[in-house]
Every structure is written in C-alpha cells, then in structure tokens.
C-alpha cells in the first residue's frame, strides 16, 4: 500500500479529513524552504505538495507565481527539489507523510519522463500533480509512473462533466484533486454547497479519496471543505504567509517560519474540528 493510500486510510480511521499543505520549493530560499518542509507535519499537514517552480505557471494566480519566482531567483532546480525530499525522509525519519510534486509538465519532459519518475521515487516522492497534463496526454507519463511506484494525481474541475470523469479517473491514482472553482489558484472561493454537490457527484464514480483545492484561505473555509471532502488542499494562502515573513527588501524576518507554521496549525485545527462519520 502506498504512503498516500495509507494516509487516507488512517484519516478515515481517525474520522477526520486531512490537510494537504502546498509550499513552493526554494521559497523564500533553499535553506528556509527546507526548514518549512521539515516542520509541516508537526504543524498539522497530513500530506505535502511541493511546488516545482516554472517560469510560466499558466494555472496559478499571483501568490503562487510570486512564490515560484522567489524560488527560481534563489536557485531552485529539479535536483535541489529532489534533495529536499531526500533530506526530509532521512533527517526526520518521517516515512509516512506523503509528498507530492506539483507543477508543469515541461520540467518532467526535459529530464526525461522515465528518469524523472525514477529519481523522484528514489528521493522519496510519492506522487505527481501536473497541471497541464490532462488525461488526453497522460499516457506518456502513466507507464513510467507506474513502473517507479509514483502515483499520478489528476485534476477534475467544475467543467469536468459525467461523460468526461471516467477518462480522468482512468489515469488517476492516489486521490483525485478537485479544482473547486473556475479559475487560477488563490483567487475565487467555492461555496460549501457547491463543494458538497461536486464531491458527491465525483464519489458516485470513484472510490478514490477526493481532495478539494483552489481558493481556500481561512480555517473556517477549510472546515467547510472538510465536512464533504477527504482533504482540503491549501497553497496560495500558505505561500502568502511566506511572503508576509519577508521585509521590504525581500529578506526573511525571524518570524517567517513560525508564522507559516502557526497558520498551517490554524488550518489543521479548523479541519480537525470536523468529526466525520
């Protein structure tokens, strides 16, 4: 059983939803980014999405765009991202918290899909979420991911209707990531009613856990999502806390890392306050 599957089984046994925390690799610099990654589980993250910065993040709003630019400026690379995960597994001894890499396909394609999957797995990565690789193109990733033991998390959107869902699910593993709003990351928020309707609709088609993301900013919104989904994914609001920890010149202030953890803790508390059947 993969780390992702185990983690969702545990959440179910604990009768609660999970928190999927997104941070951007190398943000605000390589050392602090690793410190943040390392402390996320203790702050309440159940799964971690580690963003791979890309020059042209078409599906991301300003928050994640800026986080990616901070990382690129600090010199983040794919190798350095793998190193972060490798160090995390080794130094924390945490062999249970799933880590997924999230980003855009070109970085995977340039390394060579097979090599990328092998290297990612060797570093301790559990899954990949590639925003611009819909099921129509996913066949060039799937066999290599399978061979390396990497889960391929696909996205579903409000525009993904009943006819299309099976095509998405054909390539999805680990969990299904439901993009709850029409739009880019960190902008609009979905109503609880909309989240409920969509999650119920998706659950009719799959036994995979459903994670809901995009536009969740507060512990209350996280709790609302937790009432219906298996986990809430939160990114823009977290990387905004990184930004808030920088001074006018972009230098990290001493409270940057604690500030991120306090916020993640508040989100986790919001989610853990919801008891599930």
């Amino acid at each position: 059983m993969s780390r992702i599957t185990k983690r969702f089984a545990q959440l179910k046994a604990d009768k609660r939803a999970g928190l999927v925390a997104y941070v951007s690799a190398g943000d605000p610099d390589l050392a602090l980014s690793y410190q943040i990654l390392k402390g996320l589980p203790a702050a309440g993250a159940d799964l971690i999405e580690l963003g791979m910065p890309f020059t042209d993040p078409m599906a991301d709003g300003p928050s994640v765009q800026h986080a990616g630019q901070r990382g690129l400026k600090a010199g983040i690379t794919v190798d350095a991202t793998f190193d972060m995960v490798r160090r995390f597994r080794k130094e924390t001894g945490d062999g249970e918290t799933p880590i997924l890499l999230m980003g855009y396909y070109n970085l995977v394609y340039q390394r060579g899909v097979e090599r990328f999957c092998k290297d990612a797995a060797a570093a301790g990565v559990d899954g990949l979420i590639l925003v611009d690789l819909p099921p129509e193109e996913a066949d060039e990733l799937k066999p290599h991911a399978l061979a390396a033991g990497i889960e391929t998390v696909l996205l579903a959107a409000p525009t993904t209707d009943e006819k299309r869902l099976p095509a998405v699910l054909k390539y999805a593993s680990g969990f299904l990531y439901f993009v709850s709003v029409l739009g880019i990351t960190g902008t609009k928020s979905a109503s609880e009613e909309a989240v409920r309707t969509h999650v119920e609709r998706i659950k009719r088609h799959t036994a995979l856990p459903v994670v809901v993301g995009f536009g969740i900013k507060t512990p209350d919104q996280a709790a609302a999502v937790a009432r219906h989904a298996d986990a809430a994914a939160i990114g823009s609001a977290i990387v905004d806390r990184v930004k808030a920890g920088l001074d006018d010149k972009g230098k990290p202030k001493p409270d940057l890392v604690p500030g991120v953890f306090a916020y993640v803790r508040a989100l986790a508390d919001g989610i853990r306050g919801v008891r599930k059947a």
Binding site: V131, P134, A156
Partner: peptide, 20 residues
C-alpha cells in the same frame, strides 16, 4: 485526431479548459 503533428502539438492544458 489527438491534435498531434508527429510528436508535436497536442493538448497540454489544465483540466478546467479541456472540455472547452
């Protein structure tokens, strides 16, 4: 039919846009 010219072309877009 998938929009490919040899290895080129295709539909590398976010799922939200795919149905559109």
């Amino acid at each position: 039919e998938r929009g490919h010219f040899g290895i080129f072309g295709g539909r590398f877009v976010a799922e939200t846009l795919m149905p559109l």
